[in-house]
Design a binder for these strands. Sequence first.
DNA 1: CCGTCCGCCGAAAATACCTTTCAAAGGTGA
DNA 2: TCACCTTTGAAAGGTATTTTCGGCGGACGG
Lengths: 303, 303
Amino acid sequence: MKEIFAGETPPAPAALAAKVRTLAPSMTRSMQRVAETVAGDPAGCAALTVTGLAERTGTSEATVVRTARLLGYPGYRDLRLALAGLAAHQQSGRAPAVTADIAVDDPIADVVAKLAYDEQQTLADTAAGLDTVQLGAAVSALAAAGRIDVYGVGASGLVAQDLHQKLLRIGLIAHAFSDPHLAVTNAVQLRAKDVAIAITHSGSTGDVIEPLRVAFERGATTVAITGRPDGPVSQYADHVLTTSTARESELRPAAMSSRTSQLLVVDCLFIGVAQRTYETAAPALAASYEALAHRHSPRGSQR
Amino acid sequence: MKEIFAGETPPAPAALAAKVRTLAPSMTRSMQRVAETVAGDPAGCAALTVTGLAERTGTSEATVVRTARLLGYPGYRDLRLALAGLAAHQQSGRAPAVTADIAVDDPIADVVAKLAYDEQQTLADTAAGLDTVQLGAAVSALAAAGRIDVYGVGASGLVAQDLHQKLLRIGLIAHAFSDPHLAVTNAVQLRAKDVAIAITHSGSTGDVIEPLRVAFERGATTVAITGRPDGPVSQYADHVLTTSTARESELRPAAMSSRTSQLLVVDCLFIGVAQRTYETAAPALAASYEALAHRHSPRGSQR
DNA sequence: CCGTCCGCCGAAAATACCTTTCAAAGGTGA
DNA sequence: TCACCTTTGAAAGGTATTTTCGGCGGACGG
């Protein structure tokens, strides 16, 4: 678990709000105050010195610097620069309207609009926060893998299956496990050239970490897709792909936005692998399409 | 002679290049060098300290500060902040390339951007095209249903399972079938108060239409979630919810965007039902959250 | 051609700001 | 309750920025 955090986050362009949300759970109270203040008013904070921001948040300079570090910057100075950039950025793109939470008495049309907006937001945040270097490394590993195991339980289990289906379609040998026992017993079979992928929003789902650990110890390349890159799962992951965490509410469980985010990551992995293995992937995709065609409207369909 | 410049120029937003040109004649040689460097590469200069910029322009710190003053900023620090903002601004200006298709040789970062953009587009299209009346009717049927069966095969099967999981979470009696035989044999059991939902992008997947037909004939309320509302599946559907179809390409199969679209519809159904059955849904959601909590980070996480 | 003046320039001192260290306060589990 | 670990802010320690100040070079008049 040596340098999991080394270069974990690039300077971060505009996805600051998303990053704050992602990292908030792993922050201490005072750091959260700082992070929220910063995310809430980038422009205002950019004008403040360390001391100023410390006063405004009722904390100390040290805490402000610590927060800046956690957000991926070398120090406060750089956070401040990023803040200035972000301020200029959102100055141009005027604010949207449907930021409100979904309420019990919202008419159905509002629900549609808000959900769509939230999911779009989640996608944007995920894309902005995704470390393309890690992604590229994961793609390379997948493209060269002899065998690929994907672990996920609950809502993440469906994402695991989605990835599984996709990889099969381009001719790779992949398996998806939702059963922790099966996952572990199969993980034991993995060799150095193989790849194991764990999908967990919380980053601390034991049922998923365990098989990844086994795969890691067997020498396989391991990938974690998680919303908590600092969580336990990262200990056994060679490459960590961070999904974004949207605000949740009583009616909108976290599973919903995490799923959207995870699926985007999975899609990126898939496309990336398909590019690398184009020679075999393209015909395989075409073949699977062909094979399905005749299953559409074979019976019935008399107008 | 301190405040000659006080209030002379406002912070200056993005018209820095223009200001440089305007003020250039009144500048001394070294100051012009600094100003031109800054105007030429705002992003690069934003990363430099006073000393760095002084070296790069072959001048001294004092000159850099003097230049910053002349440009209307209190000091170099503020010029640098403005520079960072300007850099971010013109960074965002160059992003219209994402409308293009995903190519085999796209760098991974482009893949991420394009995929995210496409999926966002799909969401917007779906939300815009969704018939809220049909949706409301479907929600009512679900909220009042005694039993709910969901059919979907292939990629749509995962969506069916997603809906299934969600409905279970709020205490409804739901089942998802990917196996056409099981689906049909179970559809026979449905009664008038029950609901059957078929999910098929093509609208003509026989394996899914067949159980829906059975359910329809048994008198259950039937719902179709399809990208082809004019397809055969609609014959047996009381309510048709239309998903949007994004352009697909060789590398990006239709399944990808249809899934995004279907999931949004499913989410809307879920939230809608949760609203209608709030009294029972809220505690059920809370309970399922509670039940899962202790499965997170049971082991590991030393450090 | 020389001397003096004037304004530009940069080295270095002075200051403001940022970062690090360290010890105390607060919380947690045994 | 105690020991231990985490969090936190005060203050020391560094760096970056600003200011000061004297030198340098050109311009102009003698």
